[in-house]
Design a protein around this nucleic acid. Structure first.
Lengths: 224, 224
DNA sequence: TTTTTACTATGCGAATTTTAGTGGTTGAAG
DNA sequence: CTTCAACCACTAAAATTCGCATAGTAAAAA
């Protein structure tokens, strides 16, 4: 579940981000209208949370263009209590729900869940790619119901891959998120660990979930 | 797309280089101010990433001189969080964006993408020529909805062609922006790669998107 | 101590990139 | 209308790079 947050106030933005990440959604944040429009068009999100007061391009305009581009992703708009007028315009422009600021974060999470559920998303805290399931709370990993034991590093790498399923993760990104290596580039630990994971996850299965993107890195893939 | 990185800490520099190369950019790294200025004036870069703390010549000074020389290449500056003051000076001196150290590498990549896009005048992050679409975030290429697999060099060349659709690109321009420098002029790699691209993109289609401009170079057709 | 985990080092094989060569086009000069 | 030379397209083979398996070392945990 990947969510885009378009919100210009940094404090609000990072607050929302943290809350969503705790619910184990993958979150992208963007601080201005044009940028938000751009991300919405380049990445396939499951939900867009859009503040209507934005620098560069008004939120309503962003929304209109997103819809004009044929993107059907559910959109939750945020408005100040006074901007009733804006809110109406937003719903007209194709928003699916709204929330007036200030709001309780639980309220936002609840509505996000509702929209995601309506769109057919699985409202669970576990990460799932095909028949591979990872439970971040219990740290349990199963494939096709079969329990798989992971070491700490293997688990960290797998979780990162699964949270970003469908995206190419370069070795630099993996280094940064999983290793905190002090910028050491000339090692093949990542390759070795990918190999470990493949042995546990993909070996002897019909579908391989971990894909190599030559020259860049790796990707976890649900389809094909 | 060729990017110049002016950064004196070798570890940071090589990490940035690696990350950019994984996104299939051509990268040059320089460790000091005067050298950076030199490179910036000799080579036609698509983006310059400039640390403001540099030996030899302060980054701000490098930037001023680059601008004084009439170079309009977008510049992304890097500063320590404490050097707020520097940052302001940098923006005054003509920087297009900034990033405070330490930063997440994805943040840098996102900003680099944004600057490259802005410079090219592209309205969105996705590049489109007729029914050929290239997504720089996912590195996906499709024609008429059909997925096309590209190798690193093929992708880099295609991206350059598409960013400059409608313009004739000479072989030396292509060399400068897609291949490494100190390039042997008497080679036909470019022709070979154009041929590879045509096989994947144009073969068996009604419209050919890659056109030869005899005596000059190649061009990606802009409209019909 | 034994076992497990994290990482390093190396070499093979396959994919990618480059070189080189052949033959085909184009367009201006004769 | 030819001829010729520059220019370009394409193929195949050579060179290079990159990923992966494997084995080995060191350190931590049991």
């Amino acid at each position: 579940m990947r969510i885009l947050v378009v919100e210009d106030e940094p404090k609000v933005a990072s607050f929302i981000r943290r809350a969503l990440e705790e619910e184990s959604y993958a979150v992208d944040v963007c601080g201005d209208g044009p940028g938000g429009l751009d991300w919405a068009q380049t990445v396939n999100y499951d939900l867009i949370i859009l503040d209507l007061m934005l620098p560069g391009l008004p939120g309503v305009e962003v929304l209109k263009r997103v819809r004009a581009a044929g993107i059907k992703t559910p959109v939750l708009i945020l408005t100040a209590r006074s901007e009733v007028d804006q809110r109406v315009k937003g719903l007209d422009a194709g928003a699916d729900d709204y929330l007036t600021k200030p709001f309780a974060i639980e309220e936002l999470l609840a509505r996000a869940r509702a929209l995601l559920r309506r769109a057919g998303g699985a409202p669970t805290g576990v990460l799932q790619v095909d028949d591979l399931i990872l439970n971040p709370v219990t740290r349990e990993v199963t494939r096709a119901g079969q329990r798989l034991e992971m070491t700490t590093k293997e688990y960290a790498l797998l979780e990162y891959l699964m949270r970003n399923a469908g995206r190419v993760l370069t070795r630099s990104m993996i280094t940064e998120h999983v290793w905190d290596l002090d910028f050491d580039t000339f090692t093949n630990v990542i390759d070795v660990y990918i190999s470990y994971l493949r042995n546990k996850i993909d070996k002897g299965r019909e579908k391989s979930l971990i894909q190599t993107v030559r020259g860049s890195g790796y990707m976890m893939r649900a389809d094909s």
